[in-house]
Design a protein around this nucleic acid. Structure first.
Lengths: 127, 127
DNA sequence: CATACTGTACACATACAGTATATACAGTCA
DNA sequence: TGACTGTATATACTGTATGTGTACAGTATG
């Protein structure tokens, strides 16, 4: 389990942890019943506080992506490929909606928005 | 100048003010040299603090959308239609980029992302 | 000139979120 | 038993957002 945390992004530590683990679970990089790092172990490795890791795991648990077993650790929950795709799509839709609303309010057309999306997706190919 | 502010959205007051005025300027609803409400007047009308309005106006001034004239008030800056469209597109791209990156990391394909966007744009037609 | 507007610039205070340290309790396993 | 694991709680520090209050400076008008 390799995480990359930074203080400089403006994103909170617990959000970075949750986001990176969520991506690994939804993309299938972590499978059902795979063990996550213990909250103490991850806190030690990343030189951060236990409570910060715990809150990140709580968020993932609320989303149904992982579950805890007292005394044993945290484990990836069993989710079908379809469920994971729907979760990822749902998350994207929730985050995109207010931004599209703002873009329309700022005078952009559906074509303008498509242009922006195409440019960004083409940019991503180079990475 | 009609603004709609709420405490319940999770978005800060100064961000709501800046976002709503930005939309009016970029969409052309407010034109060059139109006067904005005075910081004290807007604060009084909305029952919020002067400093909150001032910080919202500062953000818009940094973006080059408005400018102040000491003793007179704040006014919309002169911007070509093309400049405004580029500003709106640039803002959208900046906000979309990290979310597309996250969506790809969560296993979504370009087609999946297009699907989500199409659904959201179709939903918007009904509003 | 006096008054009432405008923006600008502080000093403080309050609330909350994020982060941290520390302690204690409970379950698991070699 | 000892060394792990998760769970829960108390306390504290920091930064951001928000607020009140005060003071100063430029503009407009009667």
């Amino acid at each position: 389990m390799i995480l990359s945390l930074t203080d400089l992004s403006g994103e909170s530590l617990q959000s970075q942890i949750a986001r990176q683990i969520r991506a690994k679970v939804l993309a299938g990089e972590l499978g059902a019943d795979d063990a996550l790092p213990s909250i103490r172990g991850l806190a030690r490795d990343q030189h951060i506080s236990v409570i910060t890791v715990q809150r990140a795991y709580e968020a993932l648990e609320r989303d149904g992506l992982i579950h805890s077993r007292r005394g044993k650790g945290f484990f990836v929950s069993e989710l079908s490929k379809e469920t994971k795709k729907e979760m990822a799509k749902g998350r994207l839709a929730e985050k995109l909606a207010p931004q599209l609303k703002a873009a329309v309010a700022e005078g952009l057309s559906a074509d303008d928005i498509s242009d922006v999306l195409s440019s960004l997706m083409n940019d991503r190919k180079g990475n």
